[in-house]
Simulated scan of single mutants.
Amino acid sequence: MFLKQLQYLREIERHKSFSKAATACGVSQPALSRAIRLLEDELGVIIIDRKKKVFGITDDGARVLKWAHDILRGVSELRHEVSVTKQAIAGIVKIGVIPTAVHIVPILLEAVQERCGDFASEVHVLPNGSIIEKLVSKDLDIGIMYYDQCPQAKAFQVRTLYAEQQVLAASRSFRLPEGDDISWEAASRLPLALLTKEMRCRQLVDIGFQTAGVEPMIRLETSSLELIHAQVMIGKVAAILPISSFPLRVPPPGRLKIQRLPGFSPGAVGVVRLSEQAIPEFVSDVWDSVMKTRLQDDLDLLCKPVTASGRRL
C-alpha cells in the first residue's frame, strides 16, 4: 500500500485537487483521501493543509513529497533494470516528442539500433510543456521539442536537430501556382486545415499570415494530425504543416502537391535532456546516436517536386 500512497500523493501535487488526482489514479476520491490520511498517521506528520480554502502542502508535506519522488523514481529505475536483464537488451529509453516531430522518431531509433543493438523504447507524444515537466520528474530521458520552448537554464542540455520548414500540402484536385514555393497570400485563398492555436507550430503559421498581412480561410482546426492528413488526402482542404509531420520514409509520390512557404523564421526542433553528471550509459549512447543522425537531408527530399513517373527531382 505504501507505494500506492506515494503515487496518490504525487498526483495530488500534480493536479492540486483530490478529485482530479483520484480520477488520474483510477480510484474514488474517498479511497484516495483515506490513503493519504493513513500515510499521515504512519509518518506522524500533516501533509495536506486542509484548513486552507486554497489547496496547500505543509512544510512537512513538501519534505515527504521530495522523498516520494525519489522513491518512486528509484522503483521505476529498478523495474527497468529488471526488465532489461530479463529481456537481454541494451536498455530502455523513454522519449517525449511533440506531435509534429513524430515521424523523425523511427529514423532516430534506427540509428540507436545500429549503435547499441537490440533495445526497448517508450515514446510519448506530448506538448512542449509536458515534455519539460516529465524531464524534470525523470519520467522521460530525452525530449524532442521546439528549441525556443525549453527553459534557458543550466538544468537542461539542448541541441538543435533541424530547422522546421512550413509547407502547404494539397491533393491534385487543387490548382496551385507553378513552382516549388507558394506565397502566404496565395495560401490564404485556399480552404485550410490547421492545428489548434495553443500548438507552437500553429503559432508560427499565424505569424506567417500576419507578417504577410492576410487573413487565412480556415475550414478545420484540430489537434489531430491524422485528421488533417485524412482531410487533405480526400481533397477537402489544403493544410499548412511542418514537412516533418509527413512520413519521411514512405512519402506518397504524386499523391500530394507540397510547396514551401518562405518568408519568416522557422521553428527549430531540438533534443533535450537534464544536465546531470550521472547519466545512465545507455541513455548517453542514445543521445550520442541522435546527435550523429542527419535529418535535414530527409526533410529536404520531401520538398523536392515529383515527376510524372513519381520520382523526385
Rank of each mutant, 00 (worst) to 15 (best):
P252T: 10
D297F: 05
E81V: 02
S245K: 10
A21Q: 10
L109A: 07
S130I: 06
A101H: 08
P106I: 06
C150K: 12
D141L: 01
E110M: 00
R79T: 11
W287K: 14
R311H: 00
R73Y: 13
P266S: 07
V125L: 03
P252N: 09
D141V: 03
A35K: 08
A68I: 08
R50A: 11
K51C: 01
V290Q: 03
Q296S: 09
G56K: 15
P251A: 05
C303A: 09
V167I: 11
A169V: 15
I89R: 01
L161H: 02
R34M: 11
P106R: 00
S17F: 11
S137P: 00
D288I: 00
G310D: 05
V97A: 08
S173A: 13
R50T: 12
V82K: 08
L256A: 07
A230Q: 14
D59G: 00
G263I: 02
F209Q: 05
A278M: 06
V306K: 10
S289E: 07
A238Q: 03
R37M: 12
A230E: 13
Q7T: 03
L39G: 05
M1I: 09
L301S: 00
H69Q: 11
T58H: 10
A187F: 04
A24M: 10
V64F: 08
A187L: 08
L168I: 09
L295P: 04
Q165C: 00
R34L: 09
K236G: 09
C201G: 02
M199E: 13
I98N: 05
G208A: 06
A24W: 13
Q5R: 11
D288C: 00
K52A: 12
G310T: 04
V283W: 02
L168F: 04
V250A: 13
A193S: 10
R311I: 00
S83I: 01
D49T: 06
G179Y: 09
S224P: 01
I182Y: 03
A62Y: 05
L72V: 08
S284N: 14
S245Q: 07
K197A: 14
D70R: 07
E122M: 09
T293V: 05
P280I: 00
K4V: 04
G129Q: 14
